[in-house]
Design a protein around this nucleic acid. Structure first.
Lengths: 115, 115
DNA sequence: TTATCATATGAACAGATGAACATATGTTAT
DNA sequence: ATAACATATGTTCATCTGTTCATATGATAA
């Protein structure tokens, strides 16, 4: 079942063309990791909520009908990947989108979905 | 353990503001589904390969060092979600990106990763 | 027709992932 | 100090997902 018959390309030219510009594996890995973050309903809902206004954890939970724990866990993921930033104010932590890239990426996705 | 103390908002105003413009759940679900597709290394590599040139299944497998089966399975996902299209030519099936949205979304992601 | 090649599909297994629960940390008020 | 509150974290568990293996389909050539 050794199914790779050693580089039997059908169109060698195309393959070489692609190979020539292929980015480092790590880069594409990071790219996939980024999209993975957006690929969860809870996280997308959180990010979308932050489109309009910064919010504290409790308010997100209330707004989205989620447990505080669930929100906090997902915020950690978003924070670790620099998609949101936060400021502390007493007992509360207010989160907001970290930059315009986040907005752009989601908007691009929305265009595709809207069709 | 009933952890939702009935709408105890810290900032009622922000919550109302977000609620007012929140899109239907289904829309955000579809959006997450779309990003989920991009959130896998194999699929991103396939899509990226198709940036340069259309390719048949076997050539993708050779190029990316994957089994034919793995590529075929992922192409099905991409096909079902209309991210790639294909044309048959004899025994071969040539795949290509289905539209410019795909390219735009990936490019947006790359900008974020490049930082 | 049969043999061979290119791709697709189904089943099963391994690893990843999100949610819930319990608990910990950190902050303010008393 | 202690109590009450807001958020964070660790662990467990059920589910999802991607890969592999085996096999099927579909196409060309002999």
């Amino acid at each position: 079942m050794d199914n790779k018959e050693e580089f039997l390309c059908i169109n060698e030219e195309s393959v070489e063309k692609v190979k020539a510009v292929f980015p480092p594996e790590e880069f594409l890995y990071d790219l996939a990791e980024l999209f993975k973050i957006f690929g969860d309903t809870t996280r997308i809902r959180i990010l979308y909520a932050l489109f309009e206004s910064e919010l504290c954890v409790n308010d997100m939970a209330v707004l989205l009908g989620l447990s505080q724990t669930a929100v906090s866990h997902q915020l950690r993921v978003l924070k670790n990947n620099k998609l949101v930033r936060f400021r502390k104010e007493g007992k509360n932590v207010f989160y907001s989108l970290s930059d315009e890239h986040v907005r752009s990426i989601i908007e691009m996705g929305m265009e595709h979905v809207e069709e």
